[in-house]
Amino acid sequence: MHRSADRPSPSHPSSWLRLAAAAALLFAAAPLLAQAWKPSRTVELVVFASPGGGNDKAARALQKIWADNKIVDAVVSNRVGGGGTLAYTYVSQKAGDGHYIAIAQAGVLTNPLAGRTTLTYNDMTVLPYIGTEPVSLAVRTESPIKTLKDFADRLRGNPASLTISPGSTLASTNHFVVALLARAVGSDPRKLRMVTFGGGAEAATNVLGGHIDAMVNASNNAVPHVQAGRMRMLGIASPKRVASLPDVPTFRELGFDVIQDSWYVFLGPRGLTQAQIEFWDDVFARTMKTPEWKKFVAENGWEYGFMPSRETAAFLKKEHEEARSIMSDLGALKAGQ
């Protein structure tokens, strides 16, 4: 910045003027240079749920916060299919372009492990972690299973004695919760009797009707029924009790070392520059601090959490290893993965 001032002093006044203008321009550009990258057009926020579905809701909340606070100009685009694979593939193909980001959940790890796609998170740039939903185990009120211990005892003797729904996907983090529990009591997780339904709501209907014994999924599937006195939560698989469910014990405090969250992270195309990553780190750090986001977290039973990109990458690596180990136990691992 000072180099221009060091130049041979200009004699003509108009040159002075030009120099002053140039200096002013440079000063104006200074904050830009420090931040280095910002979107030059509308950002595409890609979700793999259809409008109104789980992660679509979060994306639309983010988009609204960004618009209201003039943080980023974004549109939500729904690319539904393949348990997220279509959305991830779409974004991964925009190599080096920071205008595309995708919301991702555990499927990005489990899909390639199960052999459903060859695209892994290593083919993308990891962006921040934005929070998690606690995963709960619930039975209907009439169930003879009163506590997590009752549940574990049933699994110990005979893992096939209970019918359990993990929602709509096998070898998902929901399924992992029961698998880890079975492993903890020395039962074979492959013998578990898992029933999948079209989604969490359908699983809840079947629990309420007494057609299956229990369901394990994001806690907001059970919360309304618990409040209405029709369901009982046996525990949550979070590391510690959560603000939205202060009365529900964790698996860990009940003596079972089972921790599984339903987390949300963002991924960008491969080959994003450090400057682009820093831009998104900054955007999410600011977003997480807004009262609107805190309200979204509270209303949807999420757990507040934020990790910048670098920490998120380490987190995904750890989760990936754990998923591989559990899926191997479940026999759900594709050969060679």
Binding site: V80, G81, G82, G83, T85, L86, T89, A114, R116, T117, S168, T169, L170, A171, V195, T196, F197, G198, A332
Partner: peptide, 19 residues
């Protein structure tokens, strides 16, 4: 993808057919 087994059926490795 078959809901009950998690296996792909007749998808010819096309992610578009997985659902």
């Amino acid at each position: 993808i078959d809901l009950q087994s998690g296996q792909q059926r007749f998808t010819f490795d096309l992610p578009e057919l997985q659902d």
